[in-house]
Design a protein around this nucleic acid. Structure first.
Lengths: 337, 337
DNA sequence: ACTTGGCACTCGGAAGTATGGAGTGCCAGT
DNA sequence: ACTGGCACTCCATACTTCCGAGTGCCAAGT
């Protein structure tokens, strides 16, 4: 259906259009990329490509621009991920190595990615449900209040206040704390409900009410925070590309956590690097954008996703390279801390 | 110099221009606001106002628009803060009451403020240096690693990893933890260095090295985090107003922590509500924006600032009302948790 | 069966040219 | 001190013209 030259033409169109942002015509094509044929031949090829929906012309008698379908073909079959330069790799490394807690890692990552790609970067915090308990702490903060602090292996810290409706002795608290930690140490957060099921039986009768209160808050925390945290950076880069009227829509979409979540997509569908182009996006306001996303995690355990959002007209090979590289480094950093 | 009518004219110009976004002429002015005089008179007044720099015309033979100086006069002498409607107050209250930790309070606040004013909201996290220690926790996370967790009275949690370069017994840790807490409980963060000065002397000789490591990390935390955390929301609202070319500059400025800090200004200069208009802003990219900011805190203790950024052409009375109201409610929420 | 040069055609964008109207400044009169 | 009147300015808008990049198609060549 599409012989090699036609594919080559499509690639050339994508590359030219991405770099110039202007519809590309047969003549300029044949001049810049030295295909060994004349512009008339290219025109015929273009007619075919257009008929099949890979390219389109904004107006009669203008050059062609790739359609979403065209970009898709380009990404799937005509391009390879472009590795970062060693300078860039070093920059990533040194920049991320300076981070000293989870918040900091995430903040730095999202900025780094935005700067590297000159687009909008999106990073999801390591999923709570996929991580495990490193430590549980109970801290009395007032006569009838405890603070429950939950520290995960990814460095995430969750805290909740517990009303005890009665005095609780230091001793009881210490006891409960010890119990909780032996029960939960290293336990995956998904297994917590299971792991604490028989805990009430192990505490002294006097402490049952307070234990119950603590447990209910603990479980609640896990449920509530299922809503994952997610951040973005680099909105200024959007202003650079001309988004016609829809810039507003895009910005609005970015500020909705839910949309952002959907944007990165489900984790772990086959390959680590997923690309969603234009109308493939689930979300209304983002029909003119593309998303390149990847899983990140430590070892073989996927923790969350991160990615980049830009105009459909983006440099896919480079962007994919940057996303992949950053995802890997973040995994390493998290593993090391 | 400026009689009452001229002031009235200025007010009318500001109000009209803010609502229509078009230069206002003498005729439309005299029609909409019933000043009891003719348009020719108004023209004379306008000429004076222009001469004094309160208004300007974009082109010869167009209407007038207020200058920064004009807005300044308007804010200082011609307007009063407009209280929120009771519906809005209720909305604030219910929305903020749902928050369950500091992160959540700040996130909700910034969104709320953005939505309320339809502009960009900026909220600074409660200052570390102004808050006090509620609890210090030491958690062993590996054989040679401790996690230091610092919880402040505002609910902020700081965590740092400590390398111990040697085994440390549970007992030593417990001892050190107890010491730290007795030393520091309720201690203002500014006083921490002072409060822990003689702590090394109180620990057993064997534990000196580890105590030193902990202290150095603790002090480091206080210093490093002097760089305060700050967030914004509502960037989409910027796209609505026409910022000509500078939208990009504004977005860029917003993504720089340092700029954001400067933006809100120093805390506690005289009144709680400060307004900075156009060129009064210290920052390059923000010369076409205005900032309305306020302190917030619990009781009489100021914790940090929050505010709103928008075009100089903004509805100052309403914006000021919203900022003031939100600042108060946040204070209340923080006090109650 | 492809490829190529040629040619007529299309149409968007740039540049130039009216034209109308909102707004001004000024002046003489009340 | 205010007002009505008047001449003047100049921005927006709309309308035209015009150029050229780009196309589709065809007939001829390989």
């Amino acid at each position: 259906m599409l012989d090699d030259r036609k594919l080559e033409v499509l690639r050339a169109i994508v590359e030219d259009y991405v770099s110039t942002n202007e519809p590309v015509g047969s003549k300029t094509l044949v001049e810049s990329h030295n295909l060994g044929v004349s512009s008339a031949t290219i025109r015929n090829d273009m007619a075919v490509l257009e008929e099949q929906g890979y390219i389109a012309q904004p107006h009669t008698s203008a050059g062609r621009i790739p359609t979403d379908k065209g970009y898709r073909l380009f990404v799937d079959r005509l391009s390879t991920v472009k590795p970062l330069s060693s300078a860039e790799r070093r920059a990533i490394e040194t920049f991320l190595n300076g981070a000293y807690d989870l918040d900091d890692v995430v903040t730095r990552t999202v900025r780094l990615l935005a700067q590297l790609t000159r687009q909008v970067a999106v990073v999801q915090y390591p999923s709570l449900t996929r991580s495990s308990v490193r430590h549980v702490e109970l801290v009395p903060v007032a006569s009838r209040r405890l603070l429950l602090v939950l520290i995960t292996n990814t460095g995430r810290v969750e805290q909740r206040v517990i009303e005890t409706y009665g005095e609780v002795s230091e001793e009881s608290i210490g006891h409960l704390r010890a119990l909780l930690n032996t029960c939960l140490d290293g336990c995956g957060l998904g297994e917590v409900p299971h792991a604490v099921a028989d805990l009430p039986e192990k505490v002294a009768a006097d402490d049952r009410p307070i234990a119950a209160a603590v447990l209910s808050v603990l479980l609640e925390t896990l449920v509530d925070r299922h809503e994952e945290k997610i951040v973005f950076a680099g909105a200024a880069n959007l202003a650079a590309v001309d988004f016609s009227k829809s810039l507003r829509d895009v910005l609005e979409a970015l500020e909705e956590q839910v949309v952002l979540m959907r944007l990165l997509g489900e984790t772990g569908d086959s390959s680590t690097l997923t690309v969603r182009i234009g109308t493939e996006n689930p979300d209304e306001g983002l029909r003119s954008t593309s998303v390149v996303a990847a899983d990140y995690g430590v070892g073989d355990q996927t923790l969350a996703r991160l990615g980049v959002l830009g105009p459909t007209r983006m440099d896919y090979p480079s962007t994919m390279g940057a996303v992949r590289a950053v995802a890997r480094y973040v995994g390493q950093i998290l593993a090391g801390s």
